[in-house]
Structure formats: C-alpha cells, structure tokens
C-alpha cells in the first residue's frame, strides 16, 4: 500500500532544542493514524512541519509520493493536505457560512476577482449547506464565528477541513476541551469523514484514540518511541512508563 505521508529523518531544531528528532513516520493511505505523546513530545511541531508552517532543519517529507519538503502552507494545502488547529483558529468577523465559502474557494483562482460581487460566493450554496449540515451547524450558518460557543467553533474547524475535500486530513486535537457528548459526536463524525481518506490526528483522550485509530505512533522528546495498533502500543512497557501511566493518573 502507498504511503499517504512519509518522512525521512525529519528534524526540527529550535535554538539547539531538538523538537522533532530524526523521525521516520509512515502513514498508510486510507488509514486513521493517531499521534500521541506527553506534552512537549513534538506532536504539534510535527504537524506544523507536515503542513508547511515550519520548514524542517533537515530530512524530507513526501505526501502521496510527492516531495513537499519546504513548501509553504498554501502549496501544501493545494496538494491535498488540510489541517485543523489545536487552538481554535477562525475568522472572528465572518459567519459560519462565509467560512465554508472561503474554504471552498481556496483552491480556485476566484479569490482574486476584486471586480465581482461577493454574491458570486453564493454559487457554493448547496455544498455549503451540506457541509454545515454534516457538522450540525446549519442553524448557526449566519452567526459570526466570534460569537459561537467553543464546541461549535470546533465543529466549524472540521467543516473547513472537509470543505477542502482533502485526501489527507490532519486534525490537531479535534476533541480538545469538549464535553463528553461532544467528544462522542466528534468521534462519529471523524469516523464518517475518514471513509476514503487518510486521517492523522493528535489527541490526548485515549478513548478517542482507541475508538478511531488503526495505528498509533507514540512520540517522546521528538522521537518515535513505539508504533503499532492501539492495543499493541498500549501494552508496550516503554509507552506505559512514558505516557499511558501518566495519562491514567491524570
């Protein structure tokens, strides 16, 4: 099977601190792959490297057999890698609908049409409705994102990722800060969305990791500590000492 994402000796050094250290990651196409590890293990740095928000100190990244090392974020996005952000990252003054319209327009050149009316964006209406429906935001379509509740913002984040219709989705803590019923709803949603795509996600919630992930990579201090199925990893002794032990006490 082809690798959706493959990194070779991927390294990021911040002023001598090796946040990501010689990581060889392989994410199989069509799989749901979790990245776990204690705080500071390098998960978010790895995400930022994979999506072009940071350029690696050394090493290479390929996405669906194409080298994307060092490409800027917008180019990586156009290669079919969409990401959500750990800290909710939206456009506060735009409505939910306007967000999704923007996302749908993102991989066209229509964004440069300064001489046309913004009503032009209305042509995406059916698709926008469909996406908002999927994440349960249809009743709030015309509300400004800055005024949405936390869980609703997270749902909008997912709608944006989906709007890009990406072969590869990277979700940075999709359930962070959610209540238990929202967590289960999000798990269902991600599971549905994962059909026909590759999903890589970071989450601290082991329930989420256990219910979604085909494979789990455990990071510690910027290195891969263990990799395998959830049950395999969870019984790995190094992992228990490094992470799960800690998490279960928490």
């Amino acid at each position: 099977m082809r690798a959706a994402i493959r990194t070779r000796a991927l390294t990021k050094v911040f002023r001598g601190f090796r946040a990501v250290d010689e990581v060889d990651l392989e994410v199989r196409e069509g799989s749901v792959h979790a990245l776990v590890g204690p705080n500071g293990a390098g998960k978010t740095t790895l995400f930022n490297l994979l999506t072009g928000f940071l350029s690696p100190t050394s090493g290479t990244i390929t996405v669906l057999d194409e080298d994307v090392t060092g490409l800027p974020p917008e180019r990586v996005a156009r290669r079919g890698v969409a990401r959500s952000f750990q800290i909710t990252s939206l456009f506060d003054t735009l409505t939910s609908r306007e967000h999704v319209e923007l996302a749908l327009q993102g991989h066209t050149r229509h964004g440069f049409r300064f001489w046309r009316s913004e009503r032009l964006l209305g042509r995406h209406r059916a698709r926008v409705d469909e996406l908002l429906e999927q994440v349960g935001l249809m009743p709030l379509a015309d509300k400004q994102a800055g005024l949405l509740a936390y869980g609703q913002k997270r749902a909008l984040e997912l709608a944006l990722v989906l709007a890009l219709d990406p072969p590869v989705m990277l979700l940075d803590e999709p359930t962070a800060g959610m209540g238990i019923e929202d967590v289960d709803r999000t798990i269902d949603l991600v599971r549905r969305l994962a059909a026909g795509r590759t999903v890589v996600f970071v989450d601290h919630n082991m329930h989420v990791v256990g219910s979604l992930a085909d494979r789990v990579t455990v990071l510690q201090q910027g290195r891969i500590l263990a990799e395998g199925g959830y049950d395999e990893v969870r019984t790995d002794e190094r992992v228990i000492t490094a992470y799960l032990g800690e998490a279960e006490h928490a």
Binding site: E74, A77, L102
Partner: peptide
C-alpha cells in the same frame, strides 16, 4: 495562517 491553510497565497 488560517487563510494559508485554506490554500490562499
């Protein structure tokens, strides 16, 4: 940064 992640240059 969010706009870039949506593919905007």
């Amino acid at each position: 940064p969010r706009a870039r992640a949506l593919g905007y240059e």
